[in-house]
Write a protein that binds this DNA or RNA. Sequence first.
DNA 1: CTGCTGTATTAGTATAGTTAATACAGCCGG
DNA 2: CCGGCTGTATTAACTATACTAATACAGCAG
Lengths: 118, 118
Amino acid sequence: MINLDYKDKRPIYEQIIDKMKELMVMGVIPENAQLPSVRSLAVELSINPNTIQRAYAELERQGYIYSVKGKGNFAADNERLRDLKVDEIKERLIEILDSAKKIGMSDDDIMNVVKNRR
Amino acid sequence: MINLDYKDKRPIYEQIIDKMKELMVMGVIPENAQLPSVRSLAVELSINPNTIQRAYAELERQGYIYSVKGKGNFAADNERLRDLKVDEIKERLIEILDSAKKIGMSDDDIMNVVKNRR
DNA sequence: CTGCTGTATTAGTATAGTTAATACAGCCGG
DNA sequence: CCGGCTGTATTAACTATACTAATACAGCAG
């Protein structure tokens, strides 16, 4: 379900966070479905349970999942998931637009990248 | 010339790299002008000269500056600087467009963010 | 020659990521 | 009710990276 990339310099827990977000937003993990337990995922990935817990705690903080003690961690509603992810992307996009504006890249320059890519 | 942000979790040398790029691309440091020396900038920022050197080494590796032993570090040509920076921004932009595509954000969604922001 | 420049090396410190071990509490099926 | 699953918390230790520190060497210019 998840593949870690040890060449990546980003922390493992961040990789897990991003991958889980993707799996949920893509619908691979349906809304309100149970995520792998902290311990089982730790075994599967051959890493420490604490690292998984850290990732899950952050996912809950951001609203992507909800935790029920004694039962497990569950994906939020579809609508919620999508809204959160769209907002994230918009934020990143705006950051870049600011950088572009700063060095005087024209709207056309930006639009062309968008159009040619899609 | 440069302000460090110790609240920022990014390494100091990265902040210096970005700030220097900006100063050069914006023309605050004109093409072929000499950058502050490793030692003087270290004193000015109250950090270790090694950290400056690391930033400068990376800037040279990326083509933003060129170093002359015994003389100093100098900004690359304007055209070069701009091309490098534009490529950087395009790359980041493409990454985001991929993320957006992955979750099925429409072209219009993207375009609207671009238009409303500028 | 003196004083600036860049460059390199080696060692030490501090912090963040990660592991490890353990404990406690809630849910559920037999 | 009990055993085994779940999440959550705590404390200690290890490791890698960022950063500091001290020092040395080499080139350029007045």
